[in-house]
């Protein structure tokens, strides 16, 4: 079965739709949303409505730190642009949308795979997996054979074998990597709605659960111009629009 994993959508409706369409055209039968549905982008409501509809059809959706901030904690501790976006988002959510976010779990597990927004040893602390030490801490804390997280906005893959050595790898777009049994894997997804690895195209993961689990980091070009224009029109910080063009 093919599963599409989408993280860090951040209210970017154009990128979200492009990824969903791309994934369906390639046979994705199941959808996992790994948190941060809102924040930064100009369409939090529309993104949430699609997410709610998909969850109604069996999709998994998880809580991200921006989702939590939008209904509960606010933007304290965030940088100015992020905090401004949270304040703007907060004022625009309906009660139904707030309830949906409030019910989102921090993690989900199926068939030995763990889905989580941030570093898995303490999901609610929203730590980043940006280096080998964080990856090791995450993998040593969980039983799952493979963990999938977002939060970082840059694709990455880590593996821990029986010898205790940790392998880090920068995935190549579209090239499937087999996540062989017998070792632990931690896959860091790229961002759908605000890529930061220098490639402005939206990033999601296609997971193939055939005889061997295979992960592909897919890149999808989308209408950045419209997404950025909406951010400007909404009065959100201009930097949030500009960064979409360069993927930084």
């Amino acid at each position: 079965m093919r599963i599409a994993l989408l993280a860090d959508i951040h209210g970017n409706l154009e990128a979200f739709r492009a990824c969903l369409e791309h994934a369906r055209a390639r046979g994705a039968e199941r959808l996992v949303l790994l948190g941060d549905l809102v924040g930064y982008g100009a369409d939090p409501g529309a993104v949430l409505d699609i997410a709610m509809e998909e969850v109604g059809r069996g999709a998994i959706a998880l809580l991200g730190n921006h989702d939590e901030a939008a209904i509960a904690t606010g933007g304290s501790g965030m940088n100015d642009m992020a905090a401004a976006a949270i304040a703007w988002t907060r004022a625009r959510l309906t009660q139904a949308q707030r309830d949906f976010i409030a019910d989102l779990p921090l993690t989900a597990e199926e068939e030995g795979r763990l889905y989580v927004h941030a570093e898995a040893s303490a999901p609610a602390r929203w730590r980043y997996v940006t280096d080998a030490d964080a990856a090791r801490r995450s993998m040593e804390a969980v039983h799952a054979h493979a963990t999938f997280c977002g939060h970082v906005h840059k694709p990455g893959l880590y593996s821990l074998g029986d010898t205790g050595k940790l392998v880090g790898f920068r995935p190549v777009a579209g090239a499937p990597v087999p996540l062989a049994r017998g070792r632990h894997w931690l896959a860091v997804l790229g961002a759908v709605g605000q890529p930061r690895d220098g490639d402005p195209s939206a990033c999601y993961m296609m997971l193939d659960t055939g005889a061997q689990l295979q992960a592909s980091w897919m890149r999808v070009p989308y209408d950045v111009t419209t997404a950025a224009a909406k951010i400007r029109a909404a009065g959100l910080p201009v930097g949030l629009a500009e960064r979409l063009f360069v993927g930084r």
Binding site: T163, K165, V167
Partner: peptide
Amino acid sequence: HEQLPDLMAEE
């Protein structure tokens, strides 16, 4: 394989 993690190199 340049599109796969190189386990031999890292281990």
